[in-house]
Structures are given as C-alpha cells and as structure tokens.
Design a protein around this nucleic acid. Sequence first.
DNA 1: ATTATATTTGCTTATATGTGCAAATGAGCG
DNA 2: CGCTCATTTGCACATATAAGCAAATATAAT
Lengths: 124, 124
Amino acid sequence: MKYYIKKLKCLSDETRIRILKVIIQSKTELCVCEIVDSLQIPFYTISKHIKELKNAEILSETKEGKFVLYSFVDKKDDFLNKIIDLIKSIPDEFFSNDIKLLEKRLSIRNNGKCVVGMNENQNL
Amino acid sequence: MKYYIKKLKCLSDETRIRILKVIIQSKTELCVCEIVDSLQIPFYTISKHIKELKNAEILSETKEGKFVLYSFVDKKDDFLNKIIDLIKSIPDEFFSNDIKLLEKRLSIRNNGKCVVGMNENQNL
DNA sequence: ATTATATTTGCTTATATGTGCAAATGAGCG
DNA sequence: CGCTCATTTGCACATATAAGCAAATATAAT
C-alpha cells in the first residue's frame, strides 16, 4: 500500500508534475541541468524533488560522466503507466513555457547528449 | 492548472484514497455514516476529507433527509475518470477490511437507501 | 594536484496538512 | 417547540513538506 501512496504523494506538488511533464515531453532521459533550465527553478529544489521521485520508484537515474540523467523506471509497471497517462492528459498549454525552454535546451545537445551545464539565469 | 493540482493533492492521503475506493466499490453514492462505518475512522475526520474531495470537484453531494450522500461528479471529465481508473488499479486486497465492512453496512440498507446512522464502535 | 562543474545534502525557517475535541448547524420527529 | 441524530466547522496541536542557502560529493579538465 505504501508503494502506491508514496507514488501518489509525489503527484501532489506542482514542481514535481512539471518535472515529470518535461521528461515525458522529451521522450528520453533528461539531465538535471536541462530540467533546471526548462523550469527555471533552483537546482537544489529540482534535485530534492527528483530525489523523492526516485524514492517513490517513479524515476530512475543513469550517470554519464559529470551528468546525471533521469527517466521513468521500468515501463512494465501498470500503476506507473497510469500515472504517466494521467499527467499526459493535463493539457500542454499549462506547461508551454517549460516546453519551449526544454526545446531550446535540447537543441544544444550534441549527438543527442547533454554537453553543457546550467544556464539558469542567462536567457536561453 | 490549479484545477488539476487540487485533484492530485487529494490523492496524497491514504484516508482519502480509502474513501474513494469504497465509493467506487459501492457503484453508487454512499452516505457519510456508511463511509465512517466502513473505514472505522472518526466522522469528523471523514467529513473533513470529504470536504476537500468536494472542493477539488472530485465528489459531489446529494442531501436526502437527515443523510448526505456522496458520489463522483460528472462522469464526462476525462481527468477525473483517469483518476478513478488509477485508484481502481490499486489491488482490492489492500482495502479488504474496508470492503468487508462496507458490504455489511450496505446490507442494512432499505430499498437501496441508508436508513441507520453510525454504528462506529459497535461491531457491525 | 588543483580547479571547475554538476549534483546532492544538511540545516533552518515558513507554511501546509491531518487529527482530535467541542461546539455549531441542519433536518426530521414527538 | 424542544429533542435527537447526521454532519460540519472552528480551534489547538503535532507533524510533514517546500524552499533557501551553504557546505559536501563527485567527476572531469587543466
């Protein structure tokens, strides 16, 4: 039961929903700095929310050199898939700025990989 | 956006999930006292959680004499339907006691309507 | 090695949330 | 009307959660 409640608790915060939405949008895994630049929220805040999402077994991490990448865990989990579906059904228009910045950030990737850190306050 | 977040916040509490689960299980509307007896949680706690669920436009209320009945709002809401679906996918075994007590409580209905108040501490 | 960059973590503070109890409301009934 | 029962609400308290900042890791680059 705690397994389910923990996941559901993760859905109760707007920042976490935004994180999940950009990961869905990216269709791959995202680097922390890419999420920071997309949402324009301090890196430590993003990091803490990601920690909870990882702890709830919603996201899983991959290390790639300096960078840490996050994506959804094992797609065979029916409950998690329903959660993803639920988030997908929130209209993109509520995330239009995040998505716009995400696209700009993704366009600086090299061979599909993140190559620069955070730009945070510099206009992308 | 707040519309969505408010609903999602409602999913973050185990008591609220249990309330929603028994309403789903009943396939109709439930009286507050029936929920109290099913979950064996104080009426004021149940009442406050229901208030939030109502506020998030997840549940709607019908008054019937002394009793107040709750059920899900308008079934045409896609997001709400996905939420219901999500809750349905949490295995019944986690709610087996609630469901057992619900069935006992529903069996004292008369013409499908609630006719008695709370039994709370008396073994059903 | 030393430095720079990416990310996490500990500590603090402010706010939100859940629960308990007592009192209030509201609707039927003698 | 006055009483009873179902439900809601206000207040107090304890706990949980989010955010900010500084310091700690970790890895890469020079």
